[in-house]
Design a protein around this nucleic acid. Structure first.
Lengths: 122, 122
DNA sequence: ATAGATGCTGGAGTACACTCCAACTCAAGT
DNA sequence: ACTTGAGTTGGAGTGTACTCCAGCATCTAT
C-alpha cells in the first residue's frame, strides 16, 4: 500500500504519516524498488487505533510510549494494559463532562429561544 | 474578588485570566485603589462557562466571537443561540466517538488480560 | 519603616502537533 | 526523449493556547 493510498484510507495527511514515522508512532515500512514506502495492510489498523487515541485526548508522548511497548513485543502486555486502563478512565471523565455540557447547551438554547419569542412579541 | 481568588475558584491561572482579558474573552474588571483588578462575582460564572466551552473543544476564536456577541447585548441572542446549537452538535459527535472508543478500550483490556493469564499459565 | 506578599505591564518564550517547502529521484505514458 | 505524477529527504515554519519573566507599584503586618 502506497503512502497516498494509506493517507486516503486513514484520513491522515501524507506529511503526517511521515511525521508519525519520524517520531516513532509508525514502524518504518519496507520500500519498493523506487525507494517508496510500501505499507503492509495491517498498518491501517494501527493508524486508525492511533487516531482514536488521539481523538480521545491521549498525548503524543503517551502514544509514542504505547507504540514503543507494542514494538517491544508481548512482554509489555501488562504495561500496555495499564495504559489503556488509565486512558479508559480519562475517557469516562470526558464522557461525563460532555454529557453535562450537552445538557447545559440544551438549557441555554431553550432560554435563548424563549427570549427570542418575547422579543418578537410571539 | 481579587485575581488570585478568581484564579483559585475558576481553576485558571492568573496569567490565563489576564490573557483572556487581553484577547477579549473577559470584560476588563474595575480596579481597586491600588490599580488591582476587582472582579464582580458574576465573572466566575462566565469564566466557568468559557471553561466548559473550552473543554468541549470550542476554539478560542469562536469563544471570542461568542463573548463579543454577548457583550453586544440582547440583539445578538439569535446568533448566540445558533452558535450554541452548532456546538451542541459538535458535542454530540464527540460523545459518540468517545463511547465507541470506550468500548474499544474495554475490549482491548480484556484481550490483554486473557493474554496475561495465558502467559502466566493461570 | 521595612519586609513580604500580591498585583501590575508589555513582551518574549514554550509546548504541542503538525504542515509546508525546496530540491531531488524514479517510473510510466506519448 | 520528455513530460507528468508520485514519492523522497531534511529542515524550516505555522497555529493554538497559553506561560513566564523583568522591573516596578502597593498594601499589610511587625
Amino acid at each position: 500500500m502506497k503512502i497516498s493510498n494509506l493517507s486516503a484510507q486513514s484520513g491522515l495527511s501524507i506529511d503526517t504519516l511521515r511525521f508519525y514515522e519520524k517520531i516513532g508512532l509508525i514502524d518504518p515500512p519496507p520500500r519498493d524498488g523506487a525507494g517508496h514506502r510500501d505499507y503492509p495492510p495491517e498498518a491501517l489498523n494501527w493508524i486508525r487505533f492511533l487516531s482514536q487515541l488521539n481523538a480521545t485526548g491521549m498525548k503524543q508522548a503517551d502514544r509514542i510510549r504505547y507504540a514503543r511497548l507494542r514494538a517491544a513485543g508481548e512482554t509489555t502486555v501488562p504495561q500496555r494494559r495499564q495504559m489503556l486502563e488509565e486512558h479508559r478512565e480519562v475517557i469516562r471523565a470526558q464522557l461525563e463532562q460532555l454529557t453535562d455540557v450537552l445538557a447545559l447547551m440544551d438549557r441555554k438554547v431553550e432560554i435563548y429561544q424563549n427570549l427570542e419569542e418575547e422579543m418578537t412579541d410571539v
